[in-house]
Design a protein around this nucleic acid. Structure first.
Length: 515
DNA sequence: ATAAGTCCTG
DNA sequence: CAGGACTTAT
C-alpha cells in the first residue's frame, strides 16, 4: 500500500507514470495501490489471479491451487471480524500485511498446518460464491476492479495492462447492477480479507518481530533482525529496498508497541524506529505498557499531537471517540460518535488517532514521492490509522496541495535557471533542485528518494523550461498546460491501452483551472 | 451542495 | 502549513 519502497529499484522507467493523475477517487492515480498491484503482478500467477489481484493481493491466494495456503488463521480472522479492536499496531500492520501475505504465499508456498484452524463454512461459502460469480462473468466481463488499482507503474505496465485490458471496459456499476448479489458478496469478501490481513499482521508483529539484541552477545543478530524487520515491512524479501528507506517506511506507520519494547534496549540503531516514540509514548500512570500482552492489551495509544497548527482542528474532544471500523463507510466532520459512556470508549475504542500527527505528515511527504495526486481513497487507505473524517481528508488533500505548490514553484524557479545554464535541466541527486526538494519533503533524509521521483521532476522541469523558453509564461494561465501534461500522461497511456476514460474532474480541473 | 483543485497570503 | 477566495466538475 504505502510505497513501502516496494519498487524503489524498479520504479517506472517512464517518469510520467509516477503518478501525476488527479483522476480522483482512487482509481488510476492510486500509485500507492498500484505498487501493491505491481508487486502482486510480478509474483502472482497470471492465470486465475485476475480478480483477486485487483481486489486485494491476499485474495490472490484464493485462486491458488493450494487452497490450504490460506486456510490457516481463518479462525483468527473470524475472531477478528467479530471483535477485534483495531490498534495502531494493527492498523499500521495492515499495510504491511499485504507484503507479508505475499511473501508467505510466494516464498513459503506450502500448506500450512491447518490442524488448528479449519476453514470456516462462511469462508468457503464466500469463496465459492465469489468464484461462481466470477466465472459467471466470463473472461471478458470480470468486474473492473482494475479501476480500483489499475495504475500499474510503468515498470510493470505490460504485465498489468495485459491483465486489465480485457475487462477494463466494464463499469462497476453496471456489473453490480446486473448482479446485486455480487456486491454484497464483494463487500463480505473485502471485509473478511481486510480483517484477515489485520489479524495476520498483528500476529506477525507479536510473533515474528525481530527482537533487537539486548546484550552484546546478541549483537551479531542485529543485522539479521533488522533484515527481518525490513522484510516484514517491505513484504517480499527480494524487494530491493535500501534499508534506510525500509526504516523510514516503518517509521511512518505506527508501531507503538514495538517501539515501546525495543526502545529501551536499543535506543538508536533502528534510528527511525524510536524517533517519535518518546514524545508519543509517555507512560500513562497506572498502566503497563506490555507489548507482549497482545491485542487485548495493546493500549490504543494516542499519538503525540502534532504541532497545534497541524492538529488544532482535527483534535477532538474526548467525546469524539475513534470509530471501531478502520474504514468507516461514512464519516462526518465535527460531530463525533455519540456514546453513552466515555469511559467505555476510552478504554476500548482508542483504536485510531484522532488527528494527523507529525508522523502522518512525514508519511504524506514520502507518499508524495510516488504520487502527486492521491485520491481520497488512497488517502483514506493509507491513513486509516486516523479516524477519517472530512476534516482529516481535507487536511490531507491540503497537504498534498501544498506539496504540489512547492514542487511547481521549484520547478519554475529552476526552469528559469536552466535558461542560463542548460545543465540545470537535469535532475540528479546532486542537483540543486533535488536538494531543494529533498530538503522540503525529506529534510531529515529519512528516505531515499526514489529514482522515479527524480524522473518525474526532470520531466516537469523540462516542461516548465520549454514553456518558459517559448514565452508561454506571458499567458497568465500558462502553467495549466503543464499541469495538464503531467496529469494526463498516465491517463493517456491507459487510454491508449483501451481503458475507458475515468473520472476526469481532477485533471480537467487542473487543466482548466484559472490563474 | 460538495469535492477537489490552484493561487495568494500570512 | 493553513486559511480563504475562487473555479470547475459531479
Amino acid at each position: 500500500m504505502f510505497p513501502r519502497g516496494v519498487c524503489l529499484s524498479s520504479c517506472p522507467p517512464g517518469p510520467l507514470l509516477s503518478g501525476s493523475d488527479p483522476s480522483g477517487y482512487g482509481s488510476r492515480d492510486s500509485n500507492l495501490l498500484s505498487f501493491r498491484q505491481m508487486e502482486l503482478g510480478s509474483s502472482a500467477q497470471c492465470s486465475g489471479g485476475h480478480l483477486s489481484m485487483r481486489l486485494h493481493p491476499l485474495l490472490d491466494s484464493y485462486d491458488q491451487d493450494d487452497c490450504s495456503l490460506n486456510n490457516a488463521k481463518r479462525a483468527r480472522v473470524e475472531n477478528t471480524i467479530r471483535g477485534m479492536i483495531c490498534t495502531d499496531a494493527g492498523a499500521a500492520a495492515d499495510q504491511e500485511s499485504y507484503q507479508e501475505e505475499l511473501q508467505h504465499a510466494v516464498v513459503h508456498h506450502r500448506p500450512e498446518n491447518t490442524g488448528e484452524e479449519q476453514e470456516t463454512g462462511q469462508h468457503l461459502h464466500l469463496r465459492r460464491s465469489f468464484s461462481h460469480i466470477l466465472s459467471d462473468c466470463g473472461r471478458e466481463e470480470k468486474p473492473p476492479f482494475c479501476s480500483l488499482s489499475a495504475a500499474p507503474p510503468a515498470g510493470d505496465e505490460g504485465l498489468l495492462s495485459r491483465r486489465c485490458r480485457g475487462w477494463r471496459k466494464v463499469k462497476p456499476r453496471s456489473f453490480f447492477q446486473s448482479r446485486p448479489e455480487g456486491l454484497q458478496l464483494m463487500a463480505d469478501v473485502f471485509k473478511s480479507e481486510l480483517s484477515r490481513a489485520v489479524s495476520r499482521s498483528v500476529d506477525a508483529i507479536f510473533r515474528s518481530m525481530p527482537l533487537l539484541p539486548a546484550s552484546e552477545e546478541d549483537a551479531d543478530a542485529a543485522p539479521q533482525a533488522e533484515k527481518k524487520w525490513s522484510s516484514f515491512c517491505c513484504g517480499a524479501a527480494d524487494v530491493h529496498v535500501p534499508d534506510v528507506q525500509t526504516e523510514a517506511l516503518s517509521l511512518v506507520v505506527q508501531r507503538p508497541d514495538l517501539e515501546r519494547s525495543a526502545a529501551p534496549r536499543h535506543p538508536k540503531p533502528p534510528s527511525l524506529l524510536c524517533h517519535d516514540a518518546a514524545e508519543g509514548e509517555e507512560q500513562r500512570p497506572g498502566r503497563s505498557s506490555s507489548a507482549v500482552s497482545g491485542l487485548q492489551d495493546a493500549e490504543p495509544r494516542r499519538e503525540a499531537p502534532w504541532r497545534p497548527k497541524v492538529n488544532s482542528r482535527s483534535v477532538r474532544s474526548p467525546h469524539q471517540a475513534a470509530a471501531v471500523e478502520p474504514l468507516p463507510p461514512e464519516s462526518r466532520c465535527p460531530p463525533g460518535v455519540k456514546m453513552e459512556s466515555d469511559g467505555v470508549l476510552r478504554s476500548h475504542l482508542y483504536a485510531v488517532n484522532e488527528g494527523l500527527t507529525a508522523n502522518h505528515l512525514k508519511k504524506a511527504k514520502l507518499m508524495f514521492f510516488y504520487t502527486r495526486y492521491p485520491s481520497s481513497l488512497v488517502l483514506r487507505t493509507c491513513f486509516h490509522d486516523v479516524q477519517f473524517s472530512r476534516c482529516i481528508a481535507s487536511q490531507l488533500i491540503k497537504w498534498f496541495s501544498n506539496f504540489r505548490e512547492f514542487y511547481y514553484i521549484q520547478m519554475e524557479k529552476w526552469a528559469r535557471a536552466a535558461l542560463l545554464d542548460l545543465r540545470d535541466l537535469t535532475v540528479g541527486r546532486e542537483s540543486e533542485l533535488f536538494r531543494a526538494l529533498n530538503m522540503h519533503y525529506n529534510k531529515a533524509n529519512d528516505f531515499q528518494v526514489p529514482d522515479c521521483f527524480l524522473e518525474v521532476a526532470e520531466v516537469t522541469l523540462r516542461e516548465f523550461y520549454a514553456a518558459i523558453s517559448l514565452g508561454k509564461d506571458r499567458d497568465p494561465s500558462w502553467k495549466k498546460a503543464i499541469y495538464k501534461v503531467l496529469t494526463c500522461a498516465w491517463r493517456n497511456r491507459l487510454a491508449a491501452e483501451g481503458s475507458p476514460p475515468g473520472r476526469t474532474r481532477g485533471h480537467l480541473h487542473a487543466s482548466s483551472s484559472h490563474r
